[in-house]
Design a protein around this nucleic acid. Sequence first.
RNA 1: GCCUUCGUAGCUCAGUGGAUAGAGCAUCCGCCUUCUAAGCGGAUGGCCGCAAGUUCGAACCUUGCCGGAGGCACCA
Length: 594
Amino acid sequence: MITDDLSALIRTAVLAAAEAGEYTLDDSTFEVSLETPRSKQHGDYSCTIALAMKKYTGLKDSREIAAKIVKYIPTDSSILLRVEVAGPGFMNFYLKPDWLYTALKTIESEDKSYGFNTKMADENILIEFVSANPTGPISVVNGRAAVLGDVLGNLLASQGAKVGREFYINDALNSLQLEKFANTVVVRYMQELGHPVVMPSSADGGLETMEPGAAVLTNKAELTPVHFPKDGYRGEYVRDIARGIIAEAGDKFLTSSEEERNAYFRQATLSRMVAAQKNALEAFGIYFNTWFYESSLYSSGAVEKTIQQLKSLGYAYEHDGALWLKSSELGDEKDRVLVRSNEKATYIAADSAYHHDKFERGFNHLINIWGADHHGYVARLKAGVAALGHDPQKLEIILTQMVSLVRDGEAVIGGKRKGNIIELKEDLIDDIGKDAARFYFLLNSYETPATVDVELAKKQSNDNPVYYVQYSHARLANILVKAANQGITVRPAAQSELALLTHPAELDVLRKLADYPDEVASSAKDYAPHRLTRFGMELASLLNVFYENCRVLPGTDEPISSVLTTARLALVNGARIVQSNLLTMLGISAPDKM
RNA sequence: GCCUUCGUAGCUCAGUGGAUAGAGCAUCCGCCUUCUAAGCGGAUGGCCGCAAGUUCGAACCUUGCCGGAGGCACCA
């Protein structure tokens, strides 16, 4: 890569200058960092080493240091046009356009793998994300973590890491909630089959109300009312599940034993809810390698085994009738209960077992994506993992800032219990599509608290920058189609007069294309998918400028030499590859027509 | 009270210790007879919450304060 060549050149010059006695160098472990200047007046790359070297050399004027270094940079380099010292001591490097043409050839030959490398080949990473409770649908709030985890997975995989995506289903300990959920579905089931329902008075002062049963059994006498559970789940999706059960099993649970009915509903509501979640996520382009059931940790004995292990390692002790984890010795602020005095294991016991299991499965690096409201749990889990002999540094918790929901300017409060959920699929994807929805979440850093107004998102969907990026791709594709129709063949870049590409708009595009692999690598390293999104918008903007200023195919007014057309077609094809690779990385389609 | 996090243009947000702090939307003015106007060009708009410190250099690092969000269970 060009930046590697350039920094090697600078390193050699810094050492050569010291050797020649221009200055003394106290520390030879200096880092040569290159940056892309914000303004291209400052060259293709800029180096600040002279500023940093004030400490090591004893010289006061960093412009002077820069000048001394520059003296030892070879002027007959194959890549370098010139070097300038500017400002307080920046060294600005202006490269020969050749390097851009070389980059274009590289893009063409690497094609779909341009932007990929093998730096992280030793990493076997498991990303666990979304993991929404199986008592409600995937909501818009989950959308951000979902797309973040998915694209982060793509980014890490592009760096050569093996990546697994996992969804954890909290189906065991949380049994009270699951029971309540199943009971709620039973009530809706009976309502669908004709029973009236008594809705309890709500906490915010509403009175007890009566809902009629569905009019399916018109000839029968009035059926006995059933009571909706206090704090039951009020969302419409509960009725959907009830209807699904009727379609599959009919009305036989009206007359079955309570035991039989409860056992069936407990299992059926869980599997239907999980299926619905899976369905919604797939509509969002998100596929998990594994759906891990918390209950399996209990049935396999893993939780019990983990507790025994913690005891024998001396990290667990009895106190007040409960079993405690010595988490305070492992970075947590206090000790935590592992097994309650009622003998039930806590979530931390199951979670320790779960993360132990992840490591046991061969992953050497775990990434969990959680909402910021779980941050108080981070130290605890790391302590649990450390107690079991794993390096807590290898468990990374990404906390996404909260997503608050707004509908037509009004805050939507409450959640699954109250029934006012804004569903990811029904309320967003079905309206604006997968591409716009993904792009919407990928625009900003997960470190920024977000407010999602679905109605606003729908109204603004035409303004969604995703179309801007896709449009630039479609225009490129269109040029290639038109060229083929006119019988003009796209030649390999190596057989084109790339030196004809001298227009500033062309050079800007080429420079951006050459930057792409670095951008992917840094987005992966910093877990910052949104940077790639921004890069796509910037590239689109440069492409539009190129499109306005540099005609590719012969026009009626504007004669264009066939060699220039050939060169520009090579550029168009390279840009199409990059824009397509980028959109693919984001899980967004790259249409040829719009 | 303690912990985490956010505060940048009217709004939504980028900004990797570097040069004159950027983009989209909104507002205003221009540009379609040639490869897609979902586009291009221009204008307006900033005590980067406040203060001190570190540094050659701070929107970025440190500390304090102000304001918002979240968390401090034998819940998950």
